[in-house]
Nucleic acid binder design. Structure first.
Length: 101
DNA sequence: CTCATGACTTTTT
DNA sequence: AAAAAAGCCATGA
């Protein structure tokens, strides 16, 4: 499987996000000095190690969950299992749980 | 090289 | 407030 440098950079940042915290596609892109938020989503989709790389902790900039390779329902279940409260598809206290690089 | 596409975001209706 | 349009950029064909 081939992983591009961009994808690898995304994963390297993502593993820094602690359990019970979240980050956004835009934040990752910004941390990489770019605005490729869509490409970040693509990178997550191609995540080679779903367990090592916590791609379920990456959400939309407005606090909504967004998509997930194994289904949005699974993403929400994983987050809630980590203590993240989700109501009506949005993260509660989003600004507080957000991890800042 | 050019073209279309998407786990997105911001601006404008 | 809610929906539509426009903008963004890495990736694969």
């Amino acid at each position: 499987m081939s992983i591009t440098p961009f994808q690898q950079a995304c994963y390297d940042l993502l593993v820094q996000v602690p359990t019970g915290r979240v980050t956004t596609y835009a934040d990752i892109a910004r941390a990489l000095g770019s605005k490729a938020y869509r490409a970040v989503g693509s990178a997550m989709k191609h995540n080679p190690h779903p367990i090592i790389v916590p791609c379920h902790r990456v959400v939309n900039s407005d606090g909504r969950l967004g998509q997930y390779a194994f289904g949005a329902a699974q993403k929400q279940a994983l987050l809630m299992a980590e203590g993240v409260q989700v109501v009506d598809g949005k993260i509660v206290e989003f600004d507080r749980l957000r991890f800042y690089f």
